[in-house]
Write a protein that binds this DNA or RNA. Structure first.
Length: 715
RNA sequence: GGGCGGUUAGCUCAGUUGGUUUAGAGCGUCACAUUGACAUUGUGAAGGUCGCAGGUUCAAAUCCUGCACCGCCCACCA
């Protein structure tokens, strides 16, 4: 090592160092007897995905934890992989086909699936390569995919297990239907967007010419399937109408007027049309009041034969026609502008159509009970703790889970003659144990299950976290993980969600390119704090971290080229006040960093490290070492490299390698231990006083440091 | 409609169980500095009635109540 460049160049270092780690197989766990392993199953990114800021943060967090525990010499395993992502992937490939002027039906099921696999081979590992650029130390030899042969076995086993227990049943039942994806979707795959529409007030004549009852609706086209009118039992206005009969206009069908507590007397006229086939609440009322159920909208989004003369029309045309017809019959009382939340498909944004369909469901009651218990009793801990309440609330009110999807890409439902596939999340729910070999009793499963930590985003708690918990408890009789860490959402500087489609996204790979992986990682963490629900991304933090990397680089340069002698061994009796001070501060730092990492306060840890390295070690100790006979520069610096390694793995390893070429690489070196005897608050106080005196002298424009130097440097 | 988080220097954020006479950091701004690494630097400075209104306390950015604004999640607003 002759010449070292004046600035740190991440690009020349990162790939080289990553290859060195992979070659050395340091990402594989070293299993030692009697040592409890630390294990993370990665939230498998969709094969359609590319790294976004949320991934960058979440995987940095996981890598910090992994690298830290690896250095504490625990057997440490971070399991990677990808998710086949049913709807998402199918949509992407369908879009590709569309460019060729084809639909999936032109290809047929078999050829289409083949095509998706081709797509997967080509692009499916892109995101894993991006994780490598970030520095993630996953055990790539254990990479899994949710449609691997073994994984398919696991899914089948799980399905049959539930089936044999009688917990799986088939509809018909009302489901959320996406007409564009032409599949059922679950409640949590819906999102709501604000939408401007009209509220139409329709007049339904009462039998025997006794007048009218008015109902308000945003969906007049569904009236064709009405089988009742409902009012609140508390509503005085309608008391005498309950039990009477109304005539459904346009269809001339007699329908009862019922009372149900689900009706809010404040809304509209207080009377509501009941369409059990096309509204979830109405379906519930139909069950309690034993009402008829009439399908007037089909799975293709068009009016069915039961819609009479409107059959075959699409929804909007039918709506307009019906409004027109009601107007001519003088049955439209009024219409007003109305804003409400429109339910749309989370994947494609198409308005969701609730309809009756034959689907597969998992009964949730019995699965939920133990999943509530383990969280209530803190067998599984949520961090931040507030998510515990959110989880429990959802689990307590859980509905049966619609697990069939009318897609081609996914796990086929094991049953004769079934064409449907399973909800992607049914397979993701098995992730932490399926990737370790379940249902086979593998060595890995025995050694590494249950896992230690699940780190993920808050929007996935129900969709995924909850389902892993009940699946594992039922199928493995074990919790899937001990801690659930919910990281902050990364917003842009305006406080808006980062999103590619909104143009508010920022590509972490560009940041890595521009500032280096270490700076990207440290900068992101620097912005976070454990309890924070959201953080605003600011490129300044990444830029500052890049400068910090450079500072570290130059600290090394200085230490290497300075010809000061180093203390060969560390002996307390010979130390100067400055030495005692830095040792005291250093040992406090070791303790703080350790505590903060273990309690998921990585933002705090990174800020603390930054502060110490730059403003205590560099600005004071290194500066003073220039005046002192012997010093502890190297000793302190090597501990700093270790403490920083989980946060900035590339630069720390590189510097370490420059100085320790043939020794143990930093990645598997031993995490430093605190020596409490060296923490001395009196020394620190004394030193702080001198720092203040020096600052005062500087303010006055310099002066004589001789007396102070005596105090500081004399051993 | 319910639940939750936030509101501290121009910007992004710290501030541990309420208490070291001047509330911290990074970025930005200003002044000065090239004397053993780093100008991606060093030294120093300016900049805050801690969202608003009450309350508890000897003492509140920190606890309580109400309100406002921003954001997130949930929900059967027809």
């Amino acid at each position: 090592m002759m010449e070292i460049s004046k600035t740190y160049e991440p690009k020349q270092v990162e790939e080289k160092i990553y290859n060195l780690w992979e070659k050395g197989e340091f990402f594989k766990p070293l299993v030692k007897k009697g040592k409890k392993p630390f294990v993370i199953a990665i939230p498998p990114p969709n094969i359609t995905g590319s790294l976004h800021m949320g991934h960058a943060l979440n995987n940095t967090i996981q890598d910090v934890m992994t690298r830290y525990y690896r250095m504490t010499q625990k057997p440490t395993l971070w399991l990677p992989g990808t998710d086949h992502a049913g709807i998402a992937t199918q949509n992407v490939v369908e879009k590709e086909l569309k460019k060729e002027g084809k639909t999936r039906h032109d290809l047929g099921r078999e050829k289409f699936i083949k095509r998706v696999w081709q797509w997967k081979e080509k692009y499916g590992n892109l995101i894993l390569d991006q994780l490598k650029k970030l520095g993630c130390s996953c055990d790539w030899s254990r990479t899994r995919f949710t449609l691997d042969t073994d994984y398919v076995k696991a899914v089948e086993t799980a399905f049959l297990h539930y089936y044999k227990k009688g917990w799986i049943y088939q509809g018909p039942r009302i489901v959320n239907w996406c007409p564009r994806c032409s599949t059922a979707i679950s409640d949590i795959e819906i999102k709501y967007i604000p939408s401007k529409t009209k509220l139409w007030y329709l007049k339904y004549p009462l039998k025997n010419n006794e007048g009218f009852i008015s109902v308000a609706t945003t969906r007049p086209e569904t009236m064709l399937g009405d089988t009742a009118v409902a009012v609140s039992p508390k509503d005085e206005r309608y008391k005498n109408l309950i039990g009477k009969t109304a005539i459904l206009p346009l269809m001339n069908r007699e329908i009862p007027i019922i009372a149900d507590r689900l009706i809010d007397p404040e809304f509209g006229t207080g009377a509501v049309k009941v369409t059990p086939a096309h509204a979830i609440v109405d379906y519930k009322m139909a069950k309690t009041h034993k009402l008829g159920i009439i399908n007037v909208i089909g799975e293709d989004g068009k009016m069915t034969q039961d819609a009479g003369k409107y059959a075959g029309l699409n929804i909007l045309d039918a709506r307009n026609k019906i409004i027109e017809d009601l107007k001519t019959q003088n049955l439209l009382e009024k219409e007003e502008d109305y804003e409400h939340s429109l339910a749309v498909c989370d994947r494609c944004g198409t308005p969701v159509e609730p309809l009756i369909s034959k689907q597969w469901f998992v009964k949730m009651k019995k699965l939920a009970r133990p999943a509530i218990k383990v969280v209530k009793e803190n067998k599984i801990k949520f961090i931040p703790a507030r998510y515990k309440k959110i989880y429990l609330e959802w689990m307590k009110n859980i509905e049966d889970w619609c697990i069939s999807r009318q897609l081609w890409w996914g796990h086929k439902i094991p049953l004769e003659g079934e064409n449907d596939v399973l909800d992607t999340w049914f397979s993701s729910a098995l992730w932490p144990f399926a990737i370790l070999g379940w249902p086979k009793k593998t060595k890995d499963l025995k050694t590494f299950y249950p896992t230690t930590l699940l780190s993920t985003a808050q929007d996935i708690i129900y969709l995924w976290v909850a389902r892993m918990i009940f699946s594992s408890l039922e199928l493995c009789k074990k919790i899937p993980f001990r801690d659930v860490y919910i990281h902050s959402t990364v917003l842009n500087i305006e406080g808006k969600r980062m999103s590619k489609s909104l143009g508010t996204g920022l590509d972490p790979l560009e940041l890595i390119e521009k500032y280096g992986a270490d700076a990207t990682r440290l900068g992101l963490l620097y912005l976070t704090s454990r309890e924070q629900q959201a953080i605003r991304f600011s490129e300044d933090a990444i830029r500052a971290s890049k400068n910090f990397a450079n500072k570290l680089w130059n600290l090394n340069r200085f230490i290497q080229i300075s010809n000061k002698s180093q203390y060969s061994s560390f002996k307390t009796q010979k130390l100067s006040l400055a030495d005692k001070w830095i040792m005291s501060r250093l040992n406090e730092l070791i303790k703080d960093t350790t505590d903060k990492i273990e309690s998921y306060q990585m933002g705090e840890a990174s800020r603390r490290l930054y502060e110490f390295v730059w403003h205590e070690y560099a600005d004071w100790y290194i500066e003073m070492s220039k005046l002192q006979e012997n010093n502890l520069n190297v000793y302190v610096f090597e501990i700093i490299l270790k403490l920083l390694h989980p946060f900035m793995p590339f630069i720390t390893e590189y510097i370490w390698q420059l100085n320790h070429e043939k020794e143990t690489p930093l990645i598997i070196s031993e995490w430093p231990k605190t020596d409490k005897k060296l923490i001395n608050l009196k020394t620190e106080e004394e030193f702080e006083k001198i720092k203040k005196e020096i600052t005062e002298i500087r303010k006055k424009g310099g002066g004589n440091f001789k007396n102070l130097a005596e105090k500081i440097f004399k051993p």
